[in-house]
């Protein structure tokens, strides 16, 4: 029983990590007014390029660099189209996801060949000195891949960035009322650009975690909706760092329960558990319990002198 619980905590954390990484970045971008449905595509591209980079350089750090680069490249194009060209953010995001699914599948078959499941050099578990010896919690929480701790740090840094710095204030200003922000002298476009790139970098870490840290290989379409789930977590978390973190942990736990409950012989339909995060998010945006309000200018492009 104790061991099962330990496995549950450990796998919940592992499953929540890519969501925490991606959702934290996406939250900043959405606070600035840009919604990236392309999160899914950024993660998938990073997962593939991470695996490719780890293979060619022979090191997981090489994978990290390649994966980050791929996600940032997509984010750069997304930012340019969303912010400067003022194309429909949702359409571009969906287009990127289709493109990334096609491109990674194509390249995977060309480079790795078929369904090779080739193992790549990956990040091994990092035991935090002393802490990993805490009974029960130690092995479950403090013996994970390094990126898990990076995710925890990222949440703290992002909270500080958004709540305590002038940049954070600027981000929220351009997301709520870009016209007023512009008149106050803020560079709306530049701030939004940076916010999208922040989301891209975080999505890159999330993708690299999936292939280079979690399962040490790439599989076709391996994000399997995780990007959309991260966007969902931002909504459920009410566009607040702590709320988003809580939503991601909840989603991780719900996913993990699918594997744990059958092992314990609890007869629960797995479909219900997979559905749970989306039902909760739907309840959150419908304001039945507490209204979670998106940034006022979310998905609306800004144009000086326009209307």
């Amino acid at each position: 029983m104790n061991e099962t619980l330990q496995a549950f905590v450990s796998s919940s954390l592992r499953l929540a990590t890519p969501l925490v990484l991606a959702a934290t970045g996406e939250m900043v971008s959405e606070q600035a007014g840009v919604l990236n449905l392309s999160l899914e595509g950024m993660m998938l591209s990073a997962a593939f390029m991470g695996a490719f980079g780890a293979k060619v350089t022979g090191s997981p750090m090489g994978g990290l660099a390649f994966g980050l680069g791929a996600a940032l490249l997509l984010a750069l194009v997304q930012a340019w189209l969303s912010v400067r060209v003022r194309a429909n953010q949702l359409v571009v995001g969906i287009g990127f996801n289709i493109f990334a699914l096609g491109a990674t599948t194509f390249l995977y078959r060309q480079i790795f060949g078929g369904l090779s499941r080739e193992q790549i050099p990956s990040f091994s578990a990092l035991e935090v000195p002393l802490l990993h010896r805490i009974p029960f919690l130690g092995p479950a929480v403090f013996s994970q891949a390094g990126l898990v701790y990076v995710a925890a740090a990222l949440v703290a840094v992002t909270w500080w960035l958004v709540a305590k710095t002038p940049f954070g204030l600027a981000v929220r200003a351009v997301g709520e009322n870009p016209r007023a922000a512009d008149q106050a002298g803020l560079a709306v476009e530049r701030i939004r650009f940076l916010a999208v790139l922040y989301a891209g970098g975080c999505a890159g870490l999330a993708g690299v975690f999936l292939s280079v840290a979690s399962i040490s290989t790439f599989t076709e379409g391996m994000t399997n909706g995780a990007g959309y789930l991260a966007v969902t977590a931002v909504i459920l978390g009410g566009w607040h760092s702590v709320g988003v973190l809580g939503a991601c942990l909840l989603f991780g736990a719900a996913t993990s329960l699918q594997f744990v409950l059958p092992a314990l012989g609890v007869p629960i339909p797995t479909a219900g558990l997979v559905m749970l995060p989306y039902v909760l998010a739907l309840v959150a945006v419908s304001g039945v319990i507490r209204r979670s309000r998106p940034p006022a200018a979310l998905t609306l492009p800004f144009r000086r002198g326009g209307h």
Binding site: I98, A100, G102, A103
Partner: peptide, 20 residues
């Protein structure tokens, strides 16, 4: 998967064209 790539490029390109 090439067809999928085509579709993705098509969506992004059309959205860009519409914006211009």
């Amino acid at each position: 998967a090439i067809v999928v790539v085509c579709q993705g490029v098509m969506v992004v390109a059309m959205a860009t064209a519409a914006a211009y």
